[in-house]
Design a protein around this nucleic acid. Sequence first.
DNA 1: CGCACAATGATGACGTATCATCAAAATAAA
DNA 2: TTTATTTTGATGATACGTCATCATTGTGCG
Lengths: 161, 161
Amino acid sequence: MQTPTSANSVPWLTEHEDAAWRSFLALSRGMERAIDRQLQRDSELSSSEYHVLVPLSESQDGSLPSRELLRHLDWERSRLSHMLSRMEKRGMVCRKPSPQDARGLIVEITEHGRQVINGAAPSHLTMVREAFMDNLSTDEMQALVNMADKVIPRLENMNLI
Amino acid sequence: MQTPTSANSVPWLTEHEDAAWRSFLALSRGMERAIDRQLQRDSELSSSEYHVLVPLSESQDGSLPSRELLRHLDWERSRLSHMLSRMEKRGMVCRKPSPQDARGLIVEITEHGRQVINGAAPSHLTMVREAFMDNLSTDEMQALVNMADKVIPRLENMNLI
DNA sequence: CGCACAATGATGACGTATCATCAAAATAAA
DNA sequence: TTTATTTTGATGATACGTCATCATTGTGCG
């Protein structure tokens, strides 16, 4: 992200800041892209589908109320709704009415869903470890935590999250 | 991103590693989302459209060969093609045949495109500065550069970029 | 030259993300 | 209790990104 030449009334970045910003963007988009590619290459899951299946497979009985799932994912409600429709059609989850709350929805992972997530997880975790984790020092890991702790609240303040 | 309980043959992360990974994901997705939201709120641009317009507005005559643009963006060719179709329809760029290479394409920013990018840039740059840059120490900025320098080549090695 | 191959773009299909809107049910307020 | 508000989820429209495929043009090699 750079500055258009005709917008220089706004102070942009020093050389160091610019390098840091570009590195952040490259790292961020590179990892996102790598995760997508690796999952698609080694399994039949998209990154989003993976995220849906993980909390389900971790739950006691393989099911969660939809709103619980939403809390895990931090998605828009309609995003989850659309995603569940597609995943239900592909036989990875099924929807059941909630006994407690007639508005509610229980999402349950199917046997096929379990097979798919169990097949996808190992290579995914290995990739994250080898590409990312194994290359960071403890100081760098700490820096990530500190940065997130400072930036995220700021984004929330600005109503951008 | 967590490990499904039944896939524990793969070593996952220590507490510190897990915290760093979650921070990275939150930071990465948070900034991406904030950029999208802020641009859409304060201008009529998506993040992708912004990226297309920046190198065009910075060029000498407001135009670039399509393959030059591709090098700036590091996108798939079809992604740029689709995006240019939409942007052309909205009057922000126009396509011209290249005199040198009959396969080639020259992409030119329109007057309206200039107005839009010039209107969008200041608030965008301010947001990035206030949400991100102003909250980082020089050590943290350096850490970002170091991390990217180690991780990105690794991703390239793994053919995931 | 003539032919295989690479480079450049366009297109249609598909999956995905967001927004606006709607409906139904639960909860709070009157 | 009756009404207003909130919560939960679904849907259709639109925009976006990727893939597979195609057409055209340029390049290199025989």
